[in-house]
Design a protein around this nucleic acid. Structure first.
Lengths: 185, 185
DNA sequence: TCCGGAATGTAGCGGTTGCTACATTCCTGG
DNA sequence: CCAGGAATGTAGCAACCGCTACATTCCGGA
């Protein structure tokens, strides 16, 4: 039966929604299954193990975020780093994007702890972000472009962190201040 | 007996060392006790519960970091934001400070997940960082100074995140690029 | 209609979690 | 020297963890 594949897809989408809503807090097999509206037995029928289920769900989340980013800031046009930083900061603090950033923080922390499968996911998503930024940056020198992309990504992630530790208003003020940043040379 | 208080202090210091070395990965009561060289029974004799033990240990870590920061960049002199950003980035990527930043990332993520006692710890430490930065910033307008401090803290935290997701070299390149940043007005 | 595999339920295994009841030893003040 | 609290050990509880063996139900093709 292809029923299994179809159900698996449905479950994956529900898991992605659950992760965006609840983060990595409630991610035991039983809790994930409950969130998807199935039994834990079936979750491990659709997926080999917990890591595979989380990996698929995170992949779905990443694809979702990718679509949003593409819509908000289409490729093609290359921007000066100042403008890209300001626009990226605006996007990252957008209420609709906030759940993605919050989840992203947890994934990175789990990766830092060495938890599978998050270490791989973190490297993959980070590389995607960096490439996304680089292709929108009008800096010719590749090395400088890479370093600038890294700094911009750091600023964006840092703003998300600041929001957790100091509240949304403070993060918003800092994001606005990012508009005053200029890059020499 | 004052023995209990003395032992509690020793245990607190050992727990702090363990957290710096291993992060929040191995923080079950039994694992914490083993790291401190005592039985789990005694850990919960010195501390009311796991949260209190972690709270005390994190407090000790924060104090340690505070001392290092004070030594590296004494208060008194106020610096332009560009210089402070560059110096703070240098300190944050210092190998001796790296364990603190790694642990800090995990605490923030745990706070985002709402885990006690990390939510409170995160707010407290973030406020401390922001105040530390503000008192070293030679910007007169209080609002602008606060916003700038937030942005600098975001950049530093973001660099630590980048190190996790993209490796130390990439983070170092981005940190160096931070030296090219200028603030208008 | 019945056979066989897909789909699903039931029950449980061995392990870890935070925490505690109870017993015992240690040490000090009177 | 002994009473009594401080300090410590032993054992275990109930809940949860990821995962699986086994039984059962469902359903389409021959």
């Amino acid at each position: 039966m292809a029923l299994r594949a179809a159900q698996r897809q449905v479950v994956t989408e529900r898991l992605a929604g659950h992760l965006l809503a609840s983060g990595l807090a409630r991610t035991s097999v039983r809790q994930l299954a409950a969130a998807a509206g199935i039994s834990d037995r079936m979750l491990l029928y659709y997926f080999r193990d917990k890591a595979e289920a989380l990996g698929e769900a995170m992949g779905h989340v990443a694809a979702q975020l990718g679509g949003r980013l593409e819509a908000a800031l289409p490729a093609g046009a290359r921007r000066p780093p100042e403008r890209l930083l300001a626009e990226a900061a605006r996007i990252a603090t957008d209420p609709e994007v906030r759940p993605f950033m919050a989840l992203w923080m947890e994934v990175i922390a789990a990766a830092a702890r060495g938890e599978a499968p998050f270490a791989g996911i973190a490297r993959q998503v980070t590389a995607g972000f960096l490439s996304w930024i680089e292709t929108r940056l009008d800096i010719e020198d590749a090395e400088r472009r890479a370093a600038t992309a890294g700094l911009i990504l750091a600023a964006i992630d840092g703003l998300a962190l600041l929001e957790i530790g100091a509240g949304a208003e403070r993060a918003a003020a800092a994001a606005e201040r990012a508009g005053d940043v200029r890059f020499t040379s």
